[in-house]
Amino acid sequence: MRGGNAGRRPTLRDIADAVGVSTALVSFALNDRAGVSAETKAQILAEASRLGYRTDPVARALRTGQSRLFGVVVRNLQNPYFLDVVGGMQEAAVAAGAGIVVADADYSANLEAHHVETFAAYRFDGLAVAPVGTGAAIAQWQDLRPDVPAVVLNASVPGLDDVARVSPDNATAVRLAVEHLAQLGHRRLGFLTAPAELMADYDRLEAFLALTAERDLESRPIETPLNLRAVHDLVGRALVGSEAPSAFITNSDFTAHAVYTAVRQQGLRVGHDVSVVGHDDLATSELLDPPLTTIQLDVRALGRAAFARLWGAGSSRTHLEPVRLVARGSTGPPPS
């Protein structure tokens, strides 16, 4: 180790002895608190750098009651969308001098509860959850860490009106997809949604049912576990028969991939026989054959907005990320 302290970690006392000040003054300088002259602070910081001093985060957490760590529990990390959400949160956390720890619930309420309990035990300073189902994870967090912030990601769970919410503008997203398909002439629309017991974004389904009823369109909600195999199988079954939907609205570009494979397995063509609308505009979506019509939004901005609310810098409790429809080759008029 540098500075003659080989074999042990530099301490506040080492810095204080080298500069000729008290350990309290060293602590004030390192924590950017008032009461230290600019010249003395510069000397302390220079000596800390020379010695290779690093703040002990555990000791700081015990002293201040703050860990500067924030938990993120996601219901499905297989979906690349959530990687971009995490990327935006990480960007904001690093800028604030904090860190995030990410856990995947894999659509398991038990695993989700385990992650929340673990983060609470380590006294994390906040929690963001893209919940499984009814939002039990938020209630669990509030019980274990009362008065510590929580943010709900991509969910509109009843009974959690007192919790900050960060989400795409789901009502607008569904409206844009339905209107686009209706303008192309589609009358029978399939809509992918999680099973009721796992559904966290019920507002999407409500918007779809209301919009199709208003326009006298046939609605076919398809409840499916949101993994590629399940979506492929259930969409494949929905495509059989004379009453099959001529278009599908998916909850993500991730699941849209499975719709493509199901359509092809039935000997049909995406964009000609069956139209598909995704959600998220992943980087790979315009590379599909045909390129995917989808709902576009700034996912990393959504992640930054989520961290801002954990950090206490959000301008409002609710943030709905703006969306727009990007029309590509996966949608066209229904077959005559």
Rank of each mutant, 00 (worst) to 15 (best):
D273H: 06
S167Q: 09
D104F: 02
L209S: 04
S108R: 02
H319R: 10
D233E: 15
G126W: 00
D281Y: 04
D14V: 01
S315A: 14
A34P: 06
S246W: 03
V94M: 10
A306L: 06
D14K: 05
A283G: 05
L30A: 11
K41A: 12
E112V: 10
N110F: 06
L228F: 05
T23N: 07
L292R: 04
E179Q: 13
Q90Y: 03
A103C: 07
I100P: 03
A48D: 05
E39A: 14
L69M: 11
P290V: 00
E214G: 06
T193N: 06
P334L: 08
I15E: 05
D125G: 02
A120F: 10
A200V: 09
P57A: 11
E206A: 14
S108T: 02
H272R: 14
R317G: 15
L268C: 01
D84T: 10
V73H: 03
E47F: 02
L325W: 01
L226G: 00
S219T: 03
T40S: 13
E243P: 12
N31M: 11
F248N: 01
A210Y: 08
A283T: 13
H279P: 00
A258D: 00
T318G: 04
H115N: 00
A98P: 01
R187F: 04
S37V: 04
V323S: 02
T11K: 00
P334R: 02
Q78R: 14
H257V: 14
A196W: 09
P333F: 08
V163I: 13
R175H: 14
L209D: 07
A155E: 03
G271I: 01
V163H: 03
L205K: 04
V74H: 00
L211M: 13
G267N: 03
G185H: 04
D161L: 07
A230C: 09
V152N: 03
E214Y: 08
L184N: 02
S242V: 15
G278P: 00
Y107T: 03
T55E: 14
D106K: 09
T250Q: 06
